[in-house]
């Protein structure tokens, strides 16, 4: 028996999955860009095609993420307008429990990141405070999104 609740739930999972893939690819690209960016800068190769390709892919991934956030919000608005969908998907106590657990994971991820950098700085000098400032919310968000997705799909 296929029904609207399951169809909407599956659709929501598909959107989450695509968003998550784009998000992790972007993180990998940011790491690659940071590591190799230092090398490229050293050899004055900033206008090298690799840098441009990485930039284009990063923008494309950001677009994919944005499109899926919009799609997820539209799906949520559609669910909120239907009492049965609202009860099954938005007010669902299991989803609320998963959200609580994901917030905790996100908070721990964001709280631990500066300490990880502190530990790394005792072996290797970190000259870029922007890196720490950016990494903290990114790790927190990654922990939140991953926990929510894994809990939902377990």
């Amino acid at each position: 028996m296929s029904n609207l609740i399951e169809e909407t739930d599956r659709q929501q999972q598909r959107y989450w999955k695509r968003f998550l893939i784009a998000f992790f690819l972007l993180i990998v690209l940011l790491i690659v860009r940071y590591v190799f960016g230092t090398v490229l800068k050293e050899y004055e190769l900033n206008s090298h095609p690799i840098g441009i390709v990485v930039l284009i892919i990063s923008v494309a991934l950001l677009v994919v993420m944005f499109v899926h956030i919009v799609k997820l919000n539209r799906l949520r608005a559609r669910a909120a307008a239907n009492p049965q969908l609202k009860e099954a998907l938005i007010d669902n106590e299991l989803t609320k429990l998963h959200l609580d657990q994901s917030w905790k994971a996100g908070f721990i991820g964001a709280a631990v990141t500066p300490f990880a950098f502190l530990l790394i700085s005792s072996f290797h000098t970190i000259n870029d405070p922007v890196l720490v400032a950016f990494a903290t919310p990114i790790v927190g968000s990654a922990a939140f999104i991953t926990t929510f997705f894994l809990k939902k799909n377990r």
Binding site: M1, S2, N3, I5, E6, D9, Q84, E87, A88, L89, N92, E93, L94, K152
Partner: peptide, 13 residues
């Protein structure tokens, strides 16, 4: 899925 539909939750619940 049928039970889930009757109580307005998802099959996973």
């Amino acid at each position: 899925e049928e039970l889930a539909y009757r109580v307005s939750v998802t099959r996973k619940t």
